[in-house]
Structures are given as structure tokens and as C-alpha cells.
Design a protein around this nucleic acid. Structure first.
Lengths: 157, 157
DNA sequence: TAATTAATAATAATGGTTCTCAATTTTAAA
DNA sequence: TTTAAAATTGAGAACCATTATTATTAATTA
């Protein structure tokens, strides 16, 4: 992949270039444009560690460019989901949170019901048996989500 | 368990008696009351097959007792979740759906992303490795949710 | 350049859920 | 009983995350 990107934003680092290219490609195919707003939002999202809610991202984005409205953040996050860079999770209170998908190792979630901490894990055998279940039911697997709810070690004390 | 229940509603059948006792017990402990409204809502929920949204339940409830308001349905469904008779799922559009928990064999979900069909399945080894993951991270397992998204056999044609 | 198309910020609208409140019912106490 | 306290209700208002609308601006194309 050729990455000839004008490094006009001080926030872009090497590891983001590929993601920016992915968004660019997706936008081009959809006859959409990579605007400064969209790029800023992608950058902030990529820098954000963990599961991001729109409100969290919006606060950071406003520091960087106070003219960007929250509707644009929503619109752009939906684009990031469409092009496969982000995944949307629905929280129990009704909002959504977004996590990075590209260049992230696949993982599932352990969620503490007391302190809401999220621990990511991976188990190859669980993955394997998921495939088995899909085959048995004639499903073509696209994605999965596994959430284990419990009490974390800190909250047990 | 002693089940001496006045069978005043024609909708109660034997298999519901235990659930009604569970709700009763929970309400008693919480110093709350088993009202006719709450019982009607529980009955309709227990008769409902599959994942129920409040709006679905409300339509059926209104046929049975048009005076029951939707706020009461919401309040009661939250009670059913608290006492362990129901589980709440958050749908991607933001609403909630409820599924029965008591006397239901545990199962996970295969969800078709085209037609939204939900197929329930169970895999003992997946359960086993979940426990293993919890132990490894010091979590006390309370509950889990596994959703596999894909294209069902009918939608592949 | 002009014409077309896309994107934006601000704001209004949406819709599922919860809250408020006055009225009613149930329970417990006197 | 009678009375007081507590719980529950339906109706509708409020909430709030998200989406749609709109007038305006920016980018692209002819």
C-alpha cells in the first residue's frame, strides 16, 4: 500500500497512516470526501485508549477544533463503522461505545458489574467452537460478541 | 415449594405457578406488593414466545386489561429482571428486549444480520472455557452473553 | 467561470425510557 | 373499626442519546 500522505496534522503518527488510507479508500468508493473534520475525528478515535463514547471523543475533539459539531462526530463514527475501522457496542444505558477494529487483535470482554471495568481476553478454543456452531446451523459467520459479566478481583476485596 | 395460589386468572397455567411464587417472594422481601397489574404483565411475558419488546407485550396486555399503562409495564419488567425471571438485552437500535430466564435452558444466540432471525444454541465446551477465562483473570462469573452474527441459511439462497 | 455535489454547524425532531404527581389502593397501627 | 402511612397506579411531562433538517459553505467538475 502506498502511503503518500501530507503530514499536515501534528497528531498523525506512522501507525495511523494505514487507517487513514482505509477511510480514504472507502470514501472514494462512496464518492465522499475526506474532510479535515473527518480526519480529526478519526485521529482522536485512534488515539483514544479503550471503549470510547461519542461524548468522550467530542470533548477531546473540541479542544483540537472547537468548530466541529457533535452531529459530525456521530456521522463520522458511523462512517468508521461502515468502513470496518470501528465497532459499535450498545451499552445498557442506551448509548453506544466504539472500539477500534483494524490492527487490533480480536478479543472478547470480561465486564465487572460493580466497577464497570472491561478486561479484554482471547481464547482460541472458544473461537473454534463458535465456528462449529455456525456450521451446524448453516450460518455464515460474520462477527461475534462475547461478554462475560462478573465481579473483578479488586471488587471482591 | 408450596404453591397454594388462588387461580383467579384464566391465563395462569401450572407451569407459571413457580414463577409467580418467585416474584411474590421477591416482592415480599422488598416490601412490595403483587398487584393484579404486575401479575397480568408477568403472565403475558411468560406466555410470550421468544424475545419480547415492551411494545409487543403492551399490545397483548392492553387486550387483557386496557387500563394498564405502559409505564407500569416498564416498571414491572424491571422488577422481573431484578428478581431473576427475565433478562434484558439491548438491541442495536437502542431499545431493550426481554427474554425469560427461569426454567429456560441456558443458551446463546446466533443472529442473522439480514433478517434479524435469532437462533438459540448451547455448547458445553464454550461454557467450560468461559469458566477457565474467569478463573485466569480472578473474576467471579455471574452471567454471560454470546452473540454470533452471520447470514442464516435462508438468507444465503 | 458557473453549475453541481457534498459537507458542515446549528438546531429541531425523534422515540424509547424514566420521572413526576395527584389519585387510589393496600397495609399496619391505634 | 378508624386512621395514618406506605406503595402503586395511569397519564403525561421530561429526559437524553441519536438522527434528521436546513441554510450555508466548501470542494469538485464541466
Amino acid at each position: 500500500m502506498v502511503l503518500n500522505f501530507k503530514r499536515e496534522s501534528q497528531h498523525i503518527n506512522i501507525s495511523m497512516l494505514e487507517e487513514i488510507e482505509i477511510l480514504k479508500g472507502f470514501l472514494r468508493e462512496s464518492k465522499l470526501r475526506l474532510t479535515p473534520q473527518r480526519q480529526t475525528i478519526l485521529e482522536v478515535f485512534l488515539e483514544y485508549d479503550g471503549h470510547a463514547e461519542v461524548e468522550d471523543l467530542f470533548l477531546i475533539i473540541q479542544e483540537r477544533d472547537p468548530t466541529i459539531g457533535i452531529a459530525t462526530v456521530y456521522r463520522t463514527m458511523n462512517l468508521l463503522v461502515e468502513c470496518g475501522l470501528a465497532r459499535e457496542n450498545v451499552l445498557s444505558q442506551g448509548q453506544k461505545s466504539f472500539e477500534k477494529l483494524y490492527h487490533q487483535s480480536h478479543h472478547d470482554h470480561l465486564i465487572c458489574t460493580q466497577c464497570n471495568k472491561i478486561v479484554e481476553f482471547e481464547h482460541p478454543l472458544i473461537e473454534k467452537y463458535q465456528l462449529e456452531v455456525c456450521r451446524a446451523h448453516g450460518f455464515t459467520l460474520r462477527q461475534h460478541k462475547m461478554e462475560i459479566y462478573g465481579i473483578c478481583i479488586d471488587c471482591q476485596k
